[in-house]
Amino acid sequence: MDERLDSLPCGFVSFTDDGAIVAVNQTLLDLVGYARAEVEGRHVETLLSPGGRVFYQTHFYPLLKMQGQIGEIYLVLRARDERVIPVLAYATHREGRNDCIFIQVTSRERYQDEIARARELVIGILGHDLRVPLTSVTLGAETLLRHEQLSQEGQEIALSVLASARRAARMTTDLLDFARARFAGGIPIQPRPCDLRQVAEKIVAELRTIHPHVPIELSIEGDCRGVWDADRAAQVVANLTGNAIDHRHGETPVVVRLLCEEASVVLEVGNVADTAAQPDPDQLFSPFRLGPASSGLGLGLFIVREIMEAHGGSVKATNAAGEFRVRATWPRGT
């Protein structure tokens, strides 16, 4: 072997399609503690941990063979003395030969483990630890408001406590959804038979109570029954309508249309765009994008997109001739 290849600052191994090791450099031998004669001709799996062998057979090798190359794969090597060594592997496949390098990632792995723990902690705090006190603040304020002897000042304070607690609860929920979407593989949905007509009517009625001065025009066409996650659909209606309320121009109305057709259900929410802010439709769905009139964390539209994608659907925004519209499409489940 070329002397420079032998002393490369990363492990190198070349093996046949049968997995037989043809060449291995000194760096790798030093890492795993084998002598050259002990591994040459042996299966490349000799160098892997048992879990690593399964991963190699089920993911690494098939992908390498089909794509011709593969990179940034986390594998665990097993040294002669059974020590485990985390590495990142990069490999190319050509004419029946596979060339692979291993880069040790021991300290990087510690960092990654810390991130993973931090994610779990954040999801735990948002999902439970913060919700419990917020719920009791909300319930407390609601109980106070029902007291007949409460003074005018007391009423105002209780109302403001209630509004703040609800806002904090909404932000907590949004952050939890964000954390799940980003770190836990997506927002979980539980599709069940439901009627999106009822969902839209309920949410719009709630928003009308909260925003009595905002005209919200709701129209619904067709049979809106199907198999979706109704709670998540409610979130989509609430987020899109809430967004339209925040960003409408002056006192213009918000238009909510639900079109239930044979192949899909389309929710369209439109408002006359605030001329001061002309959002780029493509950027809108990125997280933490705060417009001047946003009332939350800038996660609403991001969460809408995640929910729609989890349903196998889609969401698109258009901004034409001063009219801003978002269309969310649910495909029919059955």
């Binding site: 879990g51 991963f55 940034e72 794969i73 990654q112 993973a116």
Partner: peptide, 9 residues
């Protein structure tokens, strides 16, 4: 290993 490959790298 799957967790690290799917969610990390």
């Amino acid at each position: 290993m799957m967790d690290k490959n799917f969610l990390g790298w």
